[in-house]
Design a protein around this nucleic acid. Sequence first.
DNA 1: TCAGTGACTGACC
DNA 2: GGGTCAGCCACTG
Length: 118
Amino acid sequence: MKAENQNFFEKVYAVVRKIPYGRVSSYGAIAGYLGARRSARMVGWAMNACNGREDVPAHRVVNRKGVLTGKFHFEGTNLMQQLLENEGVEVRENQVVNFSNLFWDPSVELGEKFAEEQ
DNA sequence: TCAGTGACTGACC
DNA sequence: GGGTCAGCCACTG
């Protein structure tokens, strides 16, 4: 019963899936892209719900500072970092190096047209 | 039903 | 310039 009504969650998943290889995004960016900038926590909640889904590259989603705050929620403490490094993303001290350069903004890449909200 | 928590963010002091 | 506080929504106990 908590797998269909995830309107907001599904939107989050859709955006996260669109994150290109070797790129990373932030919770706030996704939330803001969905028209819920203040609901960045919900994005993290969605990530928690999609933790078991390989279709959703949750490891590509980090906080605004580029820190892998959710790495502890992965099976292995280094799994998130391993996945990112596997994609060519350098991670140091649980933080993405060149985060500003690797940052992927959905509102810019996908365009606001995809966001039907407001 | 009510209250607390949570993978965040922005604003204020 | 750095730390602290409040807000937001959804889910669990």
